[in-house]
Structures are given as C-alpha cells and as structure tokens.
C-alpha cells in the first residue's frame, strides 16, 4: 500500500502573529515552523500503517525551501520519502492542483491530510484534492482502520459521529483521534540521522491560476480591561451579564 500524507508547515502554535508595516503580508521574522498539528495526527497514523501493513509513506508539501526543516522532521517521524513543490502556497486551489499532480503520478492508495491548516485555516485543500482526483472524500475523521482495499473511518457529523466504509483510493482528512495525543512520535536521534539521507525530491510548480489573494491583514483587537467581580458578590456578575452585556 502506498500512502501520501499532505503536510503543511505552519507557525508554532505559541507564535505571536505579526504583519509587515503595510499590513500586506505575514511577518515571518523569528517564527518557528512546525508540522501543522492536525497533519501530525495523519502522519503518525500513516507511520502506524507502515508498521502494521508494510505501507510506504510519502509526504508532500507545497512550499519554498524554508519548509524543508519541517519536512525533515516528518521524515524523522518515519515517512519514507518526500516531495516538495517549490512555491509559496498562494491559494487552496493551486495547492490542491499541485498535490493532485503528485498524487496522480505516484498512484497512491490512500491520501491523508489534516482537516485544516492552522495558518490559512482554509479547510479546503483535502476536499478540493478529492474532487480533482475524483476520489471519495471523508472529512473530520477521528478514527481509521485499513483492511486491504477498503478503509473504515469514523467521522464527525453534525450532532454526532458516524462510521463509514470506503473503497480505496480515497482522500481522508483528519484530526486528533486518527491517533491519540499520546501516540504522537517524538523523533529519536536515529530517526533524525536517517531522515537526512532520505530522498526529498523538489519539483517545480505548474499552476498559475490564482483565485484568491490576501489584500491585507489585521490583528484581533485587544479586549478592554477585565471587570473583576468578587466571589462573594455573584449577584453583581449576574446583573452585569444581564444588564450590561445582555447575554443572559
């Protein structure tokens, strides 16, 4: 079985997000990059399938050379090889089209993604990819088992969960639950060393039809000073919520 895991490289979750002086772009100064946390669940699941089913795991990232440190980390976690499409991601559709090309060339049985990238928050690439490849798509997955050419997936739906079975190849986007937090793999020295020698192929992009562009960015305005209410005076809290905030 061949698995493709789509990895996006995002600012570390503790990062303060700043913009350039003219607000037109994200200011990358001093940012630590990490594997998009939701993709890490997908990657770990793929590595588990590699162990249990002898699958091979390829990762793909659409990004400039700056993304390679994060890709090496994914290789250290256990992916076999990597493909980088050498371009700064522009919009979801161009990213999905670039990945679709890699997917078609490689003929993968299973494509795993995160549900959403924590920088752009498009939540769009996986579904677009499925549509471009004309493969079944399962979003918001919180459980996955593979049996031969079929997968059983647990997904979140409005108001609950459902278990579905799907014929492979398919695109599955997931989050925590694909594996548990405690199952995430911290690369060891050997992993890090071998990752350096694994193949990382760089391909040039071909998509130019950008549909969405960022005009400007704004930080979220800070809240006014908190109003503290004494624990002995909860009547006052109730009054404030009722009369001032008008939320109860």
């Amino acid at each position: 079985m061949k698995i493709l895991v789509c990895i996006s490289s995002v600012p570390d979750t503790t990062s303060k997000i700043n913009f350039t002086a003219d607000k037109s772009a994200f200011d990358k100064t001093g940012i630590q990059w990490v594997i998009n946390p939701l993709d890490e669940f997908a990657l770990t699941k793929a590595v588990k399938l590699q162990e249990s089913q002898g699958a091979s795991v390829t990762i793909v990232t659409v990004g400039d050379a700056g993304a390679e440190a994060v890709m090496r980390k994914a290789l250290a976690i256990g992916a076999n090889d990597a493909v980088r499409i050498n371009t700064e991601p522009k919009d979801s559709l161009t990213v999905a089209k670039e990945i679709a090309k890699v997917a078609q060339e490689g003929g993968y049985d299973l494509i795993l993604c995160g549900k959403e990238s924590l920088d752009y928050n498009g939540g769009a690439v996986p579904a677009m990819l499925a549509q471009l490849l004309n493969q079944p798509f399962i979003n918001a997955s919180v459980g996955l088992e593979v049996n031969g050419s079929e997968a059983t997936v647990v997904r979140e739906i409005e108001g609950g969960k459902e278990t579905v079975s799907v014929k492979l190849p398919a695109v599955i986007a997931g989050q925590k639950g694909l594996v548990e937090e405690k199952d995430l793999i911290i690369p060891n020295m050997r992993g890090i060393m071998t990752a350096r020698t694994k193949t990382l192929t760089v391909k040039e992009p071909s998509e130019t039809d950008v549909k969405v562009k960022a005009v400007s960015f704004d930080s979220v305005p800070a809240r006014a000073q908190v109003k503290l209410v004494s624990a002995d005076n909860l009547d006052e809290l109730v009054r404030l919520l009722h009369e001032e905030a008008k939320v109860i």
Binding site: G123, A127, M128, I157
Partner: peptide, 24 residues
Amino acid sequence: PHSTEASSIAPMLAVTKNAALITN
C-alpha cells in the same frame, strides 16, 4: 455556512465551478 458538512461541500463546489473559495 462553515459547518462540518458544508465546509466539505464548498471546496468541491469551487473545483466544479472553477470558482474562488473564501472560507470563514
């Protein structure tokens, strides 16, 4: 809406219609 279900539909629609997709 950007609900669990509709946020899976919208990207597919964007591919079919060759449309710009703006989420959230």
